[in-house]
């Protein structure tokens, strides 16, 4: 009997959960703070009935999306300017290449120093690293617009604004979108990290709080929730790219496909 790939995936998930439950219940592995999946499921049910969780979730999503929007605006404008002007590239690229590998979390102490425990800290730490993928994507997209397209535009005597709207934007859009996608998943991860180490609010802090309260069931419930949020973000981005640019995307690096 051949099962479809999705059914096998679900089967694998069931095997994983059942094995975990069995190993704990039978006492074969024993960690003081590792609950069986059944206990986590009960805690998860209670969690989704708790109103404060929704406030925490909205805080995290708001910080991630807000920073992403700021990063997208800065990244697209700077990336387009860098793609269009060779002299601007000459006079900035090395600085960008030096700043880009700076580990994002190293900004957390600086942000805490400047903004204290506030939403600003989160926006600062998330938005700056989230600019890079969008900036690089936009610049690459503009730069890789083929010279033939530019020649066509010139021979048709297109106006500057026409070149922008009819040639450059459509040609660069796929790589801009790839950059936006990368930086959106980065935003969610960084939002969680800042909340764990910096600003004590939102889902990231909730995980730390429940761990410190030695409440592993609820901690796991929060972790499951954050994972689901991550899956949702990824899925949303894939669907959005497919709708915005049909035919442009095959899903890269997917484990589900084939």
């Amino acid at each position: 009997m051949k099962l479809s790939p999705l059914l096998r995936g679900i089967g694998g998930l069931l095997v994983f959960v059942l094995a975990w439950e069995f190993l704990i219940q039978s006492g074969m592995i024993r960690f003081q703070y590792l609950p069986p999946p059944s206990a986590i499921a009960i805690a998860f049910n209670e969690l989704i009935a708790t109103p404060t969780m929704y406030a925490e979730m909205m805080h995290t999503i708001g910080a991630a999306l807000g920073s992403w929007v700021i990063a997208a605006m800065i990244g697209i404008v700077l990336g387009a300017a860098l793609g269009l002007s060779k002299s601007l590239r000459t006079y900035t690229m090395t600085s960008i290449e030096v700043l880009r590998p700076l580990p994002p979390v190293a900004l957390i102490p600086v942000a805490l120093l400047m903004f204290g425990f506030s939403l600003k800290t989160e926006l600062f730490v998330i938005a700056i690293p989230a600019i890079w993928p969008i900036l690089v994507g936009t610049m690459g997209g503009v730069l890789s617009t083929s010279t033939r397209l530019r020649e066509v535009a010139r021979s048709l005597k297109l106006h500057r604004s026409e070149i922008l709207f009819k040639i450059l934007i459509p040609a660069a859009a796929p790589s801009v979108l790839v950059g936006c996608r990368l930086s959106m998943s980065l935003s969610l991860v960084l939002a969680i990290v800042v909340e764990m180490i910096g600003n004590p609010e939102g889902l990231g802090y909730a995980v730390v709080r429940e761990a410190q309260a030695l409440n592993p069931n609820l901690m796991f419930a929060y972790i499951i929730l954050i994972g689901l949020l991550g899956v949702l973000f990824n899925h949303f981005l894939v669907v959005a790219s497919k709708i915005l640019l049909p035919g442009e995307f095959r899903r890269p690096n997917s484990l589900m496909g084939r």
Partner: peptide, 21 residues
């Protein structure tokens, strides 16, 4: 195929959340 869903879920999990765990 068998591991796809488990791995897809674990990959979507922001790695730092497993630090407290």
């Amino acid at each position: 195929h068998w591991t796809s869903l488990v791995l897809e879920y674990l990959r979507a999990l922001p790695p730092p959340v497993i630090i407290p765990l």
